[in-house]
C-alpha cells in the first residue's frame, strides 16, 4: 500500500474518531467513557484533541488558508463589548457590526488576563453547553454560522448560551436568533448578571470548516483569543500552539453583533 493510500486510511480513521467524539459529546461524556473497543487517550476536550478532530475535516482541501482582514481577533483580545444604543427595550440593536469591519471599542482589558474560556473559574460564567449542540444557522448574509461566544457588557469574560434552547438547524439569521431565542437563552443563563448589553461573536463561512462540536468550538475560540486570525510567526515560542495550527481556515470569518436585551 503506497503512502497516498495510507494517508487516505488516516483520513478515514480520523473521521471515525470524530464520529466517536460526537457520540461522546451527545452523551456528555468523554470519548474514553463510551466504552468502545479502543480505549483512546485524549478526547477530553483539550485543544489539541479538538483541533485534531477539527483539522481532520480539512482533508478535502489541499491548502491551509489564512483569513486576514478581520477585526474580531482585536475584539476578542480587547474583550470589548460594543455599547449599544440607548433604547434598552429594543429587541435588537440596530445594524449589525458587520462581518469584516468591526469597529473595536476599547474596553479596559488586562493583557495578563486573556479572554479564554478555559480560564473562567467564577461561577457567574456559564460554560455548560448541552450535549446536543450542533452547528448550523444562517447569518443575515445567508452564510452558515456558529456562535462562538457571548460577552457581557461589564464583564470581559465570555459565556455561552445554552444551545439546547435554540434550534440551530432552523437556518435562521443571527438577527432572528438574537431577537427571540438567543436572547431568551441568554436571559435564562444563570451567569447573566447584566443582560442589557451583550456582544455575540460568531464565525461564518464554508460549512466544512465550521466547528461542529463543543470541543471544536472551544478550540477555535481559544485559538482566536490567544493567537488571532493569522498564522503563527514564531513556532519556537514556548507557549506557541501546536505547529501548523491556524484559527480560521477555509475562508471562515468572524462576525459580531451587539444586542440589546429586553429589560427583565
Amino acid at each position: 500500500m503506497n503512502d497516498a493510500d495510507l494517508n487516505t486510511l488516516v483520513r478515514l480513521a480520523l473521521e471515525a474518531e470524530r464520529l466517536e467524539h460526537s457520540a461522546a459529546d451527545a452523551e456528555g461524556v468523554s470519548p474514553d467513557e463510551i466504552d468502545s473497543v479502543l480505549h483512546l487517550a485524549g478526547g477530553d476536550g483539550t485543544d489539541d484533541d479538538a483541533y485534531a478532530a477539527w483539522s481532520s475535516r480539512l482533508a478535502s482541501r489541499r491548502r491551509w488558508a489564512l483569513v486576514g482582514g478581520l477585526a474580531c481577533a482585536a475584539v476578542l483580545t480587547l474583550a470589548g463589548v460594543v455599547p449599544l444604543l440607548a433604547n434598552r427595550f429594543s429587541p435588537l440593536s440596530p445594524a449589525p457590526i458587520g462581518p469584516l469591519a468591526i469597529a473595536p471599542v476599547v474596553v479596559p482589558h488586562t493583557p495578563a488576563e486573556p479572554v479564554h474560556a478555559a480560564d473562567h473559574a467564577a461561577p457567574r460564567v456559564a460554560l455548560a453547553v448541552t450535549p446536543d449542540w450542533t452547528a448550523g444557522f444562517v447569518n443575515a448574509r445567508g452564510e452558515p454560522s456558529v456562535v462562538l461566544a457571548v460577552y457581557q457588557d461589564d464583564d470581559e469574560r465570555a459565556f455561552f448560551t445554552d444551545p439546547g434552547l435554540i434550534d440551530w438547524n432552523c437556518r435562521r439569521s443571527l438577527a432572528d436568533v438574537g431577537s427571540t431565542d438567543l436572547l431568551h437563552s441568554i436571559l435564562a443563563s444563570p451567569s447573566v448578571t447584566n443582560p442589557d448589553r451583550v456582544l455575540v461573536v460568531a464565525v461564518s463561512g464554508p460549512a466544512d470548516f465550521l466547528p461542529r462540536t463543543e470541543h471544536e468550538r472551544d478550540a477555535m475560540l481559544a485559538c482566536l483569543t490567544e493567537w488571532g486570525d493569522g498564522e503563527y510567526g514564531d513556532a519556537a515560542a514556548e507557549d506557541a500552539p501546536a505547529p501548523g495550527r491556524v484559527c480560521l481556515p477555509g475562508g471562515l470569518r468572524v462576525i459580531a453583533e451587539a444586542m440589546s436585551l429586553v429589560g427583565r
Partner: peptide
C-alpha cells in the same frame, strides 16, 4: 500523520 491527513503541505510542516 494527522497534519498531512488534514492537508498540510510539506512547506507548512
Amino acid at each position: 500523520l494527522r497534519a498531512v491527513a488534514a492537508g498540510a503541505s510539506d512547506r507548512v510542516l
